[in-house]
Design a protein around this nucleic acid. Structure first.
Lengths: 232, 232
DNA sequence: ACCTGAACACCGTTCAAGT
DNA sequence: ACCTGAACACCGTTCAAGT
């Protein structure tokens, strides 16, 4: 793409993202990356220590793209915006979860982002324990949804064709419930797996809201409602 | 391990699982696998077409290990058992989700298992649409939880030490909410991230129960409550 | 200082050959 | 039929050399 500007850490990471987006994670080799940058493979090593550091950089770029929630704001709106943004970013970069899984320690963007998520719950009155629950729950949901989207062989509308391909090849009477779901739902025009995201997110947030209310009514509320960093 | 029995598809897949469990997915090479089996690398190719077929086989073995729910049984108990089992299996084999992400089409065990999950919801009166919601939601949660567990550098109790290591290295005042969560919760004796699973699962199932009740009361209930394969 | 080319130890896989 | 060894086209990375 951009050819003759001097090699930069940022330019290398941008090219790495482009290669992974376009051809998949397995096509992201040091040689392919150098090709895309118009340099020899070894040129990259003068700006980043090696492939591991490139992968670390890619994950940090991902967390840069995701909207941070604002602690102190209305928690449900903030968390909704954050989760919707995270899902969109992970959808654009289907390799992202795989790369995250292979990292050993979180970078500054990762920490800052999750500090904001935790802070949003705490400032809204979630106890430390309930914040830990909520944090594990929403991240599981967002990451898991992204994994499922990444597992789909095609995007959005195309899934209908694929599903009917599968059902055509496979004995439908061996998997009757699967077949019913595909025939009566998935192949219908307008179906998009991505639309399932909002249902689950709202259900999860309803549950957290109820848990927050229950906490407020329970005897141990004083500790739970303590806010570690009160607004000025 | 077992050395001199004749090479078998099953024995190869068992060895592949053992290598991935013990040394990680990246250590699962055809040469390392052959070493473990006590043969030359190319011997494996007489029983499986190549590495892709090995990975397909590993995923099928995973779905063999997970308890199928029984359609027609009490849906909440069945789904709880299934999700608990799935989480345990994915915890034992932290490489499993990564491998699943890279597969193109589901194998028979995979299809049978998900047919049972879908059937459990349908037979309990979930409409096709609500079943699609429920299916996406619980699998997102289970896969996402597994991803997060796989991202943790150490297991269970050891996470406390690691967390305090991180907090020791990192400026705690830059990530105040993160620091609070670690100091007041994660490093406490007895904390185990895996324990977070039940909270989220119960919250999700509560939400699905409420959605099922709402569906039963709504005008369009007849179609939704139709059971495609009534008990004899 | 920034980039290069040749070389090394890997990887999955093909192919001709052994028993 | 089942297994083997050498070879091929890759991969990340080291190292000595170029500008």
């Amino acid at each position: 793409m951009a050819k003759r500007s001097p090699l930069t850490r940022a330019r290398i990471l941008a090219a790495a993202t482009a290669v992974a987006d376009a051809k998949g994670l397995s096509a992201l080799t040091m040689r392919a990356l150098a090709d895309d940058l118009g340099t020899a493979p070894m040129a990259v090593y003068h700006h980043l220590a090696g492939k591991e550091e490139i992968l670390d950089g890619l994950v940090e770029k991902i967390f840069e793209e995701i909207d941070d929630p604002v602690p102190g704001g209305p928690w449900r709106e903030e968390i909704t915006r954050r989760c919707t943004s995270a899902r969109a970013v992970l959808h654009e970069h289907p390799w992202a979860v795989s790369v995250m899984e292979s990292r050993v320690s979180p970078g500054p963007n990762n920490l800052r982002h999750h500090d904001a998520v935790i802070g949003t719950f705490r400032r809204a009155g979630f106890s430390v324990t309930l914040t830990a629950h909520a944090y594990a729950l929403i991240d599981s949901y967002v990451y898991g949804f992204a994994v499922q989207e990444a597992m789909l062989p095609v995007d959005g509308g195309g899934i209908g064709e694929l599903a009917s391909d599968i059902m055509g090849t496979l004995p439908a009477d061996e998997y009757p419930h699967f077949a019913e779901l595909v025939v009566e739902h998935v192949v219908r025009p307008g179906y998009d797996f991505g639309d399932e995201f909002d249902f689950g997110l709202n259900l999860v947030l309803d549950g957290l809201e109820a848990a927050l209310d229950r906490q407020g009514l329970s005897p141990g509320m004083t500790k739970g409602r303590e806010v570690s960093h009160p607004a000025p």
